[in-house]
Every structure is written in structure tokens, then in C-alpha cells.
Amino acid sequence: MEFFDVAWRLLVVMLAFLVLPLLVGQAEHKVMAHMQGRVGPMHAGGFHGWAQLVADGVKFAQKEDIVPAAADRRVFQLAPAVALVPYLIVLIAIPVAPNGVVGQVVDAGIFFVLAVLGVGVLGQVMGGWASANKYSLLGGMRTAAQLMAYELPLLLAAASVVMASGTLSLPGILDVWQWWWLPWQLVGAFVFFVAGVAELHRPPFDAPLAPEEIIFGPLTEYGGLRFAFFMLSEYAGIVVISALTSVLFLGGWHGPFADQLGWLWMLLKTAALCFLVIWMRVAWPRLRADQIQRFAWTCLVPLALAQIALTGVVKVVFL
């Protein structure tokens, strides 16, 4: 039945959207704590503080909603939604298992996904401008600059996979994926993943937020539910970038017994990349805004161009 089929897919996507970011958030609490010789949250929920984020959510929902008198009220209030909803929309296009287990096959898959992802960052720019706060403005400017610098390597690395597979559709890419694409597209994978993490402003690329320097950048004036939405969008972003990297470069559901266990490989690869994102936060200090720019333009962009050249030569000459 068509109606129930679509409703079922929407429900699963919504559930994934609400649960996976919380899992990553909780994992971050615990992984960071153990890497730093702490135990992290232990109280909420009883078992190793599993309900910490639920408790946080309850707290956020009860906090007063303060819009500064000087702020651009409507834009300020709308910004968290603009930051969050694109990640939900992207999830519908990500294939989880073979034989069409995907929210919806979108013809221009990778193109669509990259376009929608760009909108998410605009939410932060909106918040940064509408807050009418100097720290927010600085953070918003850095966000905009970082978006511009890292969108390009992201696009180029994704284009390399499209060249290799000859299709824009994400399930289509996985259908033709072979294991040796892994070394072939390795540089592209590095560029895509790093640029994705940078677009999320995750450490070491968190100069736009920089809590020790410009309070919390675009989020300085936010509190309560709207702040929680920004946080949720950050973790949803980690899930989406990790899932996309595993689909484009790590073979998604490919693995032993893919017909039965495809979803498991996909989830494991995504989880491993999420772990890497958390690890990066613990391992490296924050880059300065200018170092972030230099890294994008003088390192990632040339690397991505080199990957495109390699992909083109291998594809035309050897295949």
C-alpha cells in the first residue's frame, strides 16, 4: 500500500533523526571522559548516566526563552529551525541497505544532499547576524567564511566519486562500488570527511564558536529550547556527514552477507566515523581562523583537484 509505505519511511527517518544524534551525544560524553581520565555522567538514569541527555532535554524545555531587545526578533527565533531541519531532509536520501532500503531514491542524490547541507550552516549565520551581539557577529562572519572555504573541497571530493560511479544517485553509487575504490578514492575520502567536519564547526575547526574566545559565537544569545536545537543540529550533522562519508567512500552497506547484514555494516561504518569525530575533538587544539582558511585553500582544494585528475585518468585509461 503506497500510503503506508511512505508513512513508514517517514516514521523511520524521523526516529533515526531523533535517536542517532542523541546516541552520538551520549557517546561523546563518555568517550571524551574516558580519554581524559574521567568517568563522565554517571547519575542520570542509573546505568552509566545513560539518560543524561534526556535530563538535559527536560531542562532545556523548561528554561525561559529570552530574545534580546536589540535582536532581529523573527530571524533570531527562526534560525535554530533553519539549522536543524536540513539534516532531517538529508537523512531521507541516505541508503542503509541493498535493494532499495533507503528513505527515498532521489535521482540527483549527491547533488541534492550537498545543496541541502549548505542550508543548515545558513541557520548559524542567521543567528549570528540577528543576535545583534558583537560576539555573535564575529562568530557568524567566521561561520560564513568557513562555509565558503570548505564547501569547495566538499563539492570536488564528491564530484570525484560521481566520476568514478557515473551516477548522482546515492544507492546507484553503492550498486557499482568495488572494494578497490577504497584506495583509489582515499584522498577524496580524507578531503570530504575533513571538510564535512569543518562545516559542522567541530573541533579542531570550531573557531566560529570558540567558547574561550568569543563566548559561543553565533549561539551566544541563545538559551533553552532554541539552544538545544542548535546543539541537536550539530550532532545530527555528525551523523549525516559520517553516513555520507561511509556511503560515498567506504562502501556503505558493502560487507560480508550484505543482503542480510547490509544495514549493520552501514551503521558500524557510520559509528566508527562518529567516533573519529569525537576523537578529533579530544586530540587536537583549536585552529585559528586564518589557519582554518589556509588549510582549506592551500591543502584541501589542491588535494581534491589531484583526486579528480587521478579518478579521471584511472577511469578512462584502465576501465
Binding site: V6, R9, L10, Q62, D65, L84, V85, L88, I89, I92
Partner: peptide, 25 residues
């Protein structure tokens, strides 16, 4: 279907903000 997801997202945001308005001081 993609449009439906966007609608779903808007509904989610509206429900959360309305719920928040009822809960907070």
C-alpha cells in the same frame, strides 16, 4: 516524498516550540 519530509520537519519544529511555550516560565 522529500517535500513531505520538509513538512514533517516544519511540524516537528512547530510542535517543539509550541510545547516549549507551554512549559517554560
Amino acid at each position: 516524498v522529500v517535500g513531505l519530509v520538509a513538512v514533517l520537519g516544519a511540524v516537528f519544529v512547530a510542535a517543539a516550540f509550541t510545547g516549549g511555550r507551554l512549559l517554560r516560565p
